[in-house]
């Protein structure tokens, strides 16, 4: 009887530990999933702003503001343990983000600056300037992705 009880306790402990490990893994993945969703939302907002920019600068600026808020949060969306190669995580975020934090921060700042310029051009009703600035936003996205994002998987 004692032995059965002991085995039951041991089993329960193992299950608890397993669940705990599982939770840790899923937390890291959750973080990855959230940042992927945020990036997609940001891209979507920039696109909406871009589509609106020719006809409704005020609405375009509202969309851009939402993208701006996400862009500012980028560096905080890459906690330790969420790189490609970390256990239990499927992500395209390359370890270089963490080994080259200065470069990554600079790339993120570049996006924030490009969005700020775009907003200023929209506020000034400078259509051609806004178009060029949207182009710089796209470049900022691409620059960061080329260096810090791995293959689609």
């Amino acid at each position: 009887m004692k032995r059965a009880l002991g085995l039951a306790i041991l089993g329960a402990a193992l299950i608890t530990a397993g669940v705990a490990i599982g939770d840790t893994v899923s937390d890291a993945q959750k973080s990855v999933d959230q940042r992927v969703a945020a990036m997609k939302e940001m891209g979507g907002k920039v696109n909406e702003a871009f589509q609106l920019s020719a006809t409704n600068a005020a609405d375009a600026r509202t969309k851009l503001a939402a993208a701006f808020a996400i862009a500012q949060s980028i560096p905080s969306r890459f906690p330790a343990g969420t790189a490609d190669g970390d256990p239990g995580v499927t992500t395209r975020a390359l370890p270089k983000i963490w080994s080259d934090q200065g470069g990554f921060q600079k790339a993120a700042d570049g996006l924030v600056a490009a969005l700020k310029t775009t907003d200023a051009k929209l506020a000034a009703n400078d259509g051609a300037g806004a178009d060029a600035a949207f182009g710089d936003v796209r470049k900022a996205c691409g620059t960061c992705h080329e260096t810090y994002r791995g293959k689609a998987k």
Binding site: G43, G44, N47, F50
Partner: peptide, 11 residues
């Protein structure tokens, strides 16, 4: 190579 969500073609 421009995607609608401001991402770009790669690979």
């Amino acid at each position: 190579g421009e995607e609608p969500n401001f991402d770009s073609a790669e690979g």
